[in-house]
């Protein structure tokens, strides 16, 4: 294919490629505001942003995994398992440490450590054992889901009631009227964007995802980069869990169901290529917001049968991706 031809065809698309997700978000905000007066109220915006934080924090990590040519289907089950573990450990140590912030810190450390370890397991199997990421994470997805069901004995793991009032502010409180999940999500997103754009790691991840042979000849340690993307994702799943547990103080086998697909959808809506090589963290953030806004708007409006919520989501996801289709999609 002639180079000139390619650039000429790509050029008019370039604007939409950047603007596509932003446009979709703006349209959704206008639709929401015109349908319901409370849509732009501070309370509703706080609700939507806070609940986006779980998927959002995970999706930032997922962006790096996908950019490096990988995939992680295990994050939803992993979040459920870590939440269960965090609750069990805090309940077990409650008599020794007493209710208070030291115990909360222990819970947080458990979540981060478990996330790191889970990411390392995925990364080890994918890089060192050379098993397809899809298969490895499909396997660990089932493992973590079963483990949390087993830990909960089929029921629900609940945080001790005395601890709940102490840990609750992590989700519901904040500074300057901005709740903690929103602040953490923003910090993770900004750091992610900077690493993707400015740090060597971001460029290495894109190089590995684009062509791992070329990356290897360019003295990029391919396995190390891949491993690190999974470990970072695991850590971020731990961070998301730290935000999640304080909300309802419980975890069960229905925790985090389909989070992996929501996170992957957000990454793709944001303009990252599923086959790797290129990605943008800010796009992922917009993708996450689009997904939560659709849910929010459907709940705030009448007239659409709730049976059709999934269909509307599907249409909007496909539309958002069509808007930013580029020459590579045409083959």
């Amino acid at each position: 294919m002639a180079n000139i031809d390619a650039t000429q065809r790509a050029k008019p698309m370039l604007d939409l490629k950047v603007l596509g997700p932003i446009l979709a978000l703006v349209v959704l905000v206008i639709v929401g505001a015109s349908l319901n007066g409370n849509f732009l109220s501070a309370a509703n915006i706080t609700n939507v942003l806070s609940r986006s934080a779980f998927i959002g924090i995970i999706a930032v990590g997922m962006t790096f995994v996908i950019v490096a040519g990988g995939l992680d289907l295990s994050v939803g089950s992993m979040a459920a398992f870590i939440a269960g573990l965090m609750i069990l450990v805090m309940n077990a140590l409650l008599p020794a440490l007493g209710p208070g912030w030291p115990l909360v810190m222990v819970g947080m450390l458990v979540a981060i450590a478990a996330g790191t370890l889970a990411g390392m397991v995925n990364g080890f199997l994918i890089t060192t054992m050379r098993i397809e990421a899809f298969i490895v994470t499909l396997g660990t997805m089932g493992i973590y889901r079963s483990l949390v069901t087993w830990l909960a004995d089929g029921g629900t793991l609940s945080l001790d009631f005395g601890m709940r009032s102490i840990i609750r502010p992590i989700y519901f409180d904040g500074v300057f009227g901005i709740s903690w999940p929103i602040i953490v999500f923003a910090l993770v997103a900004i750091t992610g964007e900077l690493v993707m754009r400015r740090a060597a790691f971001g460029r290495h991840a894109a190089a590995v995802g684009s062509n791992d042979q070329v990356a290897r000849y360019s003295s990029v340690n391919v396995n190390r980069v891949r491993m690190l993307t999974y470990v970072f994702l695991g850590i971020l799943v731990g961070v998301a869990t730290i935000m999640y547990v304080p909300r309802l103080g419980s975890a069960s086998s229905s925790t985090g169901v389909l989070w992996e697909l929501e996170a992957i959808a957000a990454v793709i809506i944001g303009g990252t290529m599923l086959k790797g090589g290129f990605g943008r963290v800010w796009g992922t953030v917009i993708g996450v917001l689009i997904l939560s806004l659709i849910d929010n708007i459907l709940n705030l409006t009448d007239g659409v049968s709730p049976y059709l919520n999934g269909a509307i989501q599907g249409v909007i996801i496909v539309l958002a991706v069509i808007l930013q289709r580029d020459k590579k999609a045409e083959g």
């Binding site: 069901t149 909960a152 004995d153 089929g154 029921g155 629900t156 069960s252 086998s253 229905s254």
Partner: peptide
């Protein structure tokens, strides 16, 4: 199997 709360109770 005990995959959700109610089923867990039923197993018990």
């Amino acid at each position: 199997a005990a995959t959700h709360g109610w089923a867990g109770g039923m197993n018990f």
